[in-house]
Design a protein around this nucleic acid. Structure first.
Length: 154
DNA sequence: GCCAACGTTGGC
DNA sequence: GCCAACGTTGGC
């Protein structure tokens, strides 16, 4: 099983929205690296931190689980969608989506500033300079560290 | 709202 | 295939 970080702006869709909806499709990803993670490496049962970007504060807000992996993103075929891609066909879809379900919301968001204070997280891709990927892998050690912070046990 | 950093596009 | 211009991301 693998661990991930999935970023979303809370004003667009927050952890509370996910808690209310129970599950949601992770659609509209239009970045090849993020797509490749979803297509090739994400498996049903994998866990992900739900990360609020551009939030107040930005940081890890909770945990979600992958419930469906690597299905074509329907928006790429929809001419009315902002995610429409004229190069995509049903036979050869370009963009991929996964479905996630709510697992837990942290009592308090773990701010990115707090993550930067952890020496063991210094090499995390999330904290790398200029990182903009919306989906990132997390190591098991990083997972445990952040989970403890999120649950207030660190 | 600013701006640095990055991915993508398109002209050549 | 290079690279400048552009658009987007995301922390602050």
């Amino acid at each position: 099983m693998k661990y991930w970080i999935m970023k979303c702006e809370p004003e667009v869709y927050s952890i509370k929205d996910l808690a209310r909806d129970k599950k949601t499709g992770w659609e509209g990803v239009r970045n090849y690296q993020a797509r490749n993670f979803m297509r090739d490496d994400m498996k049903v049962g994998d866990l992900a931190f739900y990360y609020h970007s551009n939030g107040e504060p930005s940081g890890a807000a909770g945990v979600a689980r992958i419930t469906k992996a690597g299905t074509p993103d329907p928006h790429q075929f929809d001419k009315k969608s902002k995610y429409y891609d004229e190069k995509a066909t049903k036979e050869k879809p370009i963009w991929i989506t996964v479905e996630i379900e709510f697992v837990e919301e942290f009592p308090e968001i773990v701010p990115i500033e707090r993550l930067r204070q952890e020496k063991s997280l210094a090499k995390m891709q999330l904290l790398a300079r200029g990182n903009r990927l919306s989906i990132l892998p997390v190591t098991a050690a990083e997972w445990e560290t952040i989970l403890a912070l999120g649950r207030g046990k660190a």
